[in-house]
Write a protein that binds this DNA or RNA. Structure first.
Lengths: 205, 205
DNA sequence: TGTACATCAGTGAACGCGCGTTCACTGATGTAC
DNA sequence: TGTACATCAGTGAACGCGCGTTCACTGATGTAC
């Protein structure tokens, strides 16, 4: 933090600043010049670490997926032997993450990097996050699965879509918290209710 | 379309141009100056119809919700007596709409107008769209409902979240079409699969 | 251990850009009488 | 039916803005010998 000429780890510092800015404001507020300013560096310095703004945003999104994956793994720890309970815990972690970092969450799913154009780091981080969820769906459904991988795959996608939809609608303010209820509490309650109702379909796969 | 001084219906023409631009490009491409240009009018003219860019975007989003509502009502027409089949048809319409108008769909759920700050026209259009879905969920679940309005409300939210999540993930390119499958076909198939698996939970409400 | 030198990671000035928005204006329209 | 006039919906010039990006540069670092 002294006034050395070389920053030390500007790349990570820029990503930090970007996440901070997203949490405090919005995606529009994330500009290379501003991040440079906040990192105490000239506005041209970031170009030594990111080829352009888009590359930096991809790095931010990748970090977001890593955070999301970690949260899901952590909250759906192996304490509980019921894989269905674990799955719901992971879902809750997913939705809670979105509510805590709405702008970051939006960036991650902004469609800014369509399919093939996705940088490998981002692709990889996203894939690893989804894998957590998919694995848990597999565990939760496999025991009773008569209908093979195809049905399990559908169930997996549907589960993901359910929590993703809940997350998005919450972030959009389309689902209301109860009076006096904190956003995180609302996220947890709504996720448990939603997965409770529709989850029955999964069990009987 | 002649070179009259007064346009006639500039307001609607601007909204048309905005939707066209969203479908062809992206939200970033929607600027007041550009819409004016494409409507053949000076760049200051739009200010006689919209107080600023944000007001115009709200108008576009409202129109989007009206389109969405219409599609759902149309595709889930009353031919089929099974309310559950109707509900799935509405869900398919929802997801298909998103796939056909990804950028418009994103704008509608961009979180740009948080709760209270939502212009009345937009608020109303959105509410009317959701009402279609909610009504169908009510029809599909009420017959067997032992648990009262509370459970129905949860089911309603969860159903909405499911199709919303499917739509968002498809729009983001996170769910792949099969080789040779058109985006719309993929949307329909994935929606039917997803609502098929999780819908069982609704039936047994 | 010192020195030469390549490489790396910063600086700061400069550029062009299209945008949103404001302003004084003018031409067209509609209405009261 | 004509006329006066208020109102409405355009025009076009102008402004300031912060941005992304480029460039020649300089200071710091690391490595070969």
């Amino acid at each position: 933090m002294s006034k050395r000429y070389h920053h030390g780890d500007l790349r990570e510092a820029l990503l930090d600043a970007a996440v901070r800015t997203l949490d405090a404001e919005s995606l529009d507020a994330v500009t290379l010049r501003r991040l440079a300013r906040e990192t105490g560096v000239s506005h041209a310095a970031p170009y030594h670490h990111f080829s352009d703004l888009d590359a930096l945003l991809a790095g931010v999104a990748a970090r977001g997926f890593r955070m999301l994956r970690e949260e899901m793994s952590r909250k759906a720890g192996p304490e509980d032997p019921d894989p269905f309970v674990q799955l719901r815990a992971a879902g809750t972690a997913y939705v809670t993450f979105a509510v805590l970092h709405p702008e970051l969450f939006r960036l991650m799913f902004s469609g800014r990097w369509p399919g093939a154009g996705q940088p490998p780091e981002l692709q990889d981080a996203a894939e690893r996050a989804f894998a957590v969820l998919r694995e848990m769906v597999r565990n939760a459904t496999l025991p009773g699965a008569d209908q093979g991988a195809e049905a399990v795959e559908s169930g997996s996608r549907a589960s993901w879509a359910l929590v993703h939809g809940l997350a998005m609608l919450l972030v959009d303010g389309r689902l209301d918290a109860r009076p006096g209820e904190s956003p995180v509490d609302a996220a947890e309650r709504i996720t448990l209710e939603g997965t409770g109702v529709l989850g029955r379909g999964l069990r009987s796969l």
